[in-house]
């Protein structure tokens, strides 16, 4: 900072009125091929960051964040698991010879305490890994243990089955209008397989289907997939009313 007599200030502030032009520092005197961060290196970092961001976005789009059904504390069959980066600790605590105090306090306390205080435990001048064998081998041991424990914990779980069993199910909020002219036909021909609220029992749910009334009429007569033909039994007018009824419930569910 400039000091001395004859300094000029902006108004009555403490800001100097003498402006120097911003000239980037000259790094040519520095050893090796030193580069200025601003703007040369930042541009390269920016490009790498953009590539990284594209990759990251692809991941986020290709694999949406999972969401299971709402928390149900009474679900005794649910296999509780921590997030993946705590699996190693979880697995360690599962072994019979590991007591809670030992597994949750002493061992992690020593491991993470040593990590925290590493500069004071490894005090030599040498920086190369093979010149400080104790620090290097302890760290390698730690990494291998964490990877192994995480693998052991993760391999014991059937992740796909777990996700399949715990799909999010929004509560159905459709009201079935039993006064609808098509309801009687639905009750006679469809209810036994598709449920009282179209939620699906033996057959699939009829809510959220992407068919027009005409297509529904065809399906009711000709069947589709596992559904055999000839399920509907009635007049053409009743068939039309039935299709209108199913469409109306779908419209209601979409609101």
């Amino acid at each position: 900072m400039k000091k001395g007599k004859g300094m000029k200030f902006v108004g009555d502030s403490r800001i100097s009125a003498d402006k120097e032009r911003f000239i980037p520092k000259d790094y040519s005197e520095y050893p090796g091929k030193t580069e200025a961060f601003w703007p040369n290196f930042l541009l390269k970092e920016w490009l790498v960051g953009a590539v990284f961001l594209v990759g990251f976005l692809c991941l986020a789009v290709a694999h949406p964040a999972p969401l299971e059904g709402p928390a149900d504390p009474t679900d005794a069959s649910y296999l509780p698991l921590p997030d993946w980066y705590f699996l190693f600790l979880y697995q360690f605590l599962k072994y019979d010879f590991v007591t809670t105090v030992y597994g949750a306090v002493i061992v992690p306390g020593i491991a993470f305490g040593a990590l925290f205080l590493a500069p004071f435990l490894d005090r030599g001048k040498e920086r190369r890994p093979h010149k400080r064998p104790i620090a290097t081998s302890l760290m390698l041991l730690g990494i291998i243990s964490v990877f192994w424990l995480t693998y052991e914990a993760a391999a014991a779980v059937d992740w796909e089955e777990k996700a399949e069993e715990n799909k999010p199910e929004p509560t159905s909020e459709v009201e079935i209008d039993t006064e609808h002219p098509g309801y009687a036909a639905y009750e006679n021909s469809c209810l036994s397989c598709h449920g009282g609220e179209l939620e699906g029992t033996a057959g699939p749910s009829l809510i959220g289907i992407d068919y027009s009334a005409e297509e529904i009429e065809e399906i009711a007569i000709d069947g589709i997939g596992d559904m055999p033909p000839g399920q509907f039994d009635g007049t053409d007018e009743e068939l039309q009313q039935l299709a209108e009824f199913i469409v109306s419930v779908n419209e209601q569910a979409e609101d």
Partner: peptide
């Protein structure tokens, strides 16, 4: 990571927190 995991309040979140708190309780 630990606190954020609970927030969606699905089964996974609830039971993971249950496990973590049980471990903390053992200290």
């Amino acid at each position: 990571g630990l606190t954020g995991y609970l927030l969606p309040w699905d089964n996974k979140a609830y039971f993971a927190t249950q496990v973590t708190l049980e471990i903390a309780e053992g200290v």
